[in-house]
């Protein structure tokens, strides 16, 4: 069992609730601040954390995360620096960390070398948005598995039965369900179809199912938490930070916001 599985298990079995999984872009506004903000996420109620590795051409991201990636890259953030940050923080934070990246920075590092370095830095899982299971199964998945790191698979509303079966076979850690056909970013409302799909999918997967893309309010968190094992909030937090750039007490404000977003999980206990 990986730390990721353990964590979901604790939430599900002992606390009878879904896990809260916030996302931050590493290096936005700078790596030192990201380190402080990670602590705020945990204090506010994060069960797992997704750490974004900035990429120059983020085709799956909406404007909010695109801007965050540009800011981080303008600061000169590199894969090594992001892995260093995780290495420094992983033990003291005490929650599993998932590196959220596009494939090319990993490819440029060399897959074997990356797998070793990610494991060495305490990364628990890797989520690669442009690496579908067909490609991931060939090299990166097995390499990460050898080091005990999960390669998190994704499913989308367009994924048919054959793809669900494939992902179920390869699943490791958890499966990330992209709840909207589109890029990352907040949505006014979630469609009723999402909840139906998640209910149906969850039964067919051997690992927990987390839902992300478009979730930004405590009400939406509560809705998704009623059917899923985990709720991911990304753009809403990245925007929250963007709007408060340069302000004092940023970490305290973030902690408070995360608490607001994660508290419904305790109220929708199953």
């Amino acid at each position: 069992m990986s730390e990721i599985s353990d964590r979901f298990e604790i939430c599900r079995r002992h606390e009878r609730r879904a896990a809260f999984i916030p996302f931050l872009m590493a290096g936005d506004p700078d790596l030192e601040t990201t380190g402080v903000l990670l602590e705020a996420l945990v204090a506010g109620g994060a069960d797992l954390i997704e750490v974004g590795m900035p990429f120059s051409d983020p085709i799956a991201d909406g404007p909010v995360i695109q801007r965050a990636a540009s800011r981080a890259l303008a600061r000169g953030v590199t894969l090594s620096a992001v892995l260093d940050l995780i290495a420094r923080k992983r033990a003291s934070l005490g929650v599993p960390m998932v590196l959220f990246s596009y494939f090319n920075p990993i490819h440029a590092r060399g897959l074997a070398r990356f797998a070793e370095q990610a494991a060495g830095s305490g990364v628990d899982g890797v989520l690669c948005v442009d690496l579908p299971p067909e490609e991931g199964a060939v090299e990166l998945g097995p390499l990460l598995a050898r080091h005990g790191v999960d390669l998190v698979q994704l499913l989308a509303p367009t994924s048919g039965d054959d793809r669900v079966r494939r992902v179920a076979r390869q699943a490791s850690g958890f499966v990330y369900y992209v709840s909207v056909t589109g890029t990352t970013g907040e949505r006014q409302r979630l469609s009723a179809q999402v909840l139906k799909d998640v209910r149906r999918l969850r039964k067919r997967l051997p690992v927990p199912l987390a839902v992300g893309f478009g979730i930004s309010t405590p009400e939406q968190v509560a809705e998704v938490a009623s059917v899923a094992d985990g709720v991911v909030v990304g753009s809403a937090l990245v925007r929250f930070l963007e709007e408060r750039a340069g302000q004092r007490r940023l970490a305290a404000a973030l902690e408070e916001r995360v608490r607001e977003l994660s508290s419904p999980l305790w109220e929708t206990r199953r």
Partner: peptide, 12 residues
């Protein structure tokens, strides 16, 4: 070559 795209595009 290959298909390195988000899951949403794999079925299409």
């Amino acid at each position: 070559g290959g298909r390195f795209v988000p899951e949403t595009l794999m079925a299409p």
